[in-house]
């Protein structure tokens, strides 16, 4: 009974001894080696997705719409209105893909983590290394997309540079929660639920039109969803305008990241050790 208690409530030091050798760097080293070898195409294709959305919706649809009311009541072009929202969405999609489908595949089919976990690496090292690689990929996308929209004149403030670290914060929140959720899944069919949740969130989170288009009850519901906070935050940064809501959005993602990492950490042994 005593040993059982010790196993359930270990101290931080004991937990680290069970789950980490402090060598997430080796997992990251492996990630970079693989990128150098072959994976540039995957990275490049991920960069183009939001660019295509921006060109078709922003330029195409934007010609019909003209200007819309942006943060602080300024009139901005429709392309400038959706560009930051697309960056937030792309950060979310990339992080979710890497932390769910990618993790699931490497766990169940490529058996990559099985090999890693037969070494000194613990589940924490593997998770931290993989989340780092997901964020690195998100960083490349964010830099690329920010350069694109800035060169198209869709940002009006140097604060737009802050969109890059904020994209990483959004990605961290989603990646941590995604990895924790993956620990509950055993089949590809269950993984599809993630897409079923993400697509409507993209459509309705004030990405392509203002939230005021919805009845008030629905607005309140959307405001509980993470992507809406990401979209609004990015939009404010792109024009360098803030108010009290900026702090709320930031706090939302800091909290989501902290809770997400805690959640993923709790599920770590269930995910990797069966």
């Amino acid at each position: 009974m005593t040993t059982k208690l010790i196993r359930i409530r270990p101290g931080v030091g004991a937990w680290m001894a069970a789950n980490s050798s402090g060598n997430a760097g080796a997992v990251i080293g492996r990630g970079f080696k693989v990128i150098r070898n072959q994976n540039w195409m995957i990275i490049v294709s991920g960069f183009f997705e939001p660019v295509f959305y921006l060109l078709s919706m922003g330029i195409g649809l934007g010609a019909l719409i003209g200007t819309v009311t942006g943060p602080g009541g300024h009139q901005i072009s429709y392309a400038a209105y959706i560009a930051p929202a697309l960056l937030a969405t792309s950060a979310m999609n990339g992080a979710i893909y890497d932390s769910t489908w990618n993790v699931f595949f490497k766990l169940r089919f490529a058996k990559l983590y099985e090999g890693m976990l037969a070494t000194s690496l613990g589940p924490l090292d593997v998770a931290a290394g993989e989340i780092f690689m997901a964020l690195f990929r998100g960083f490349l996308y964010a830099v690329g997309f920010t350069v694109v929209i800035a060169s198209m004149g869709l940002t009006t403030s140097w604060w737009a540079l802050a969109m890059i670290p904020v994209a990483l914060l959004i990605a961290l929140g989603f990646a941590a929660i995604g990895m924790a959720l993956t620990s509950y899944f055993t089949t590809f069919q269950q993984m599809d639920w993630i897409n079923i949740a993400l697509l409507p969130m993209f459509m309705f989170s004030a990405t392509l039109f203002p939230i005021e288009a919805f009845p008030e009850v629905m607005q309140w519901f959307i405001m509980t969803l993470p992507l809406w906070h990401g979209v609004e935050l990015m939009r404010q940064l792109s024009v360098g305008h803030w108010d009290a809501s900026t702090a709320v959005h930031l706090t939302y993602f800091v909290a989501m990241s902290v809770l997400g990492v805690a959640f993923a950490t709790r599920r770590l042994r269930t995910l990797f050790l069966r």
Partner: peptide, 25 residues
């Protein structure tokens, strides 16, 4: 091995039933 996994595995060599080599390397 449950409470000291990394330390235990430092002196183990594991050959699993099905090969799990890193196909990307």
């Amino acid at each position: 091995p449950e409470t000291h996994g990394p330390e235990v595995r430092a002196s183990l060599g594991v050959v699993p039933q099905t090969d799990n080599l890193d196909t990307e390397l």
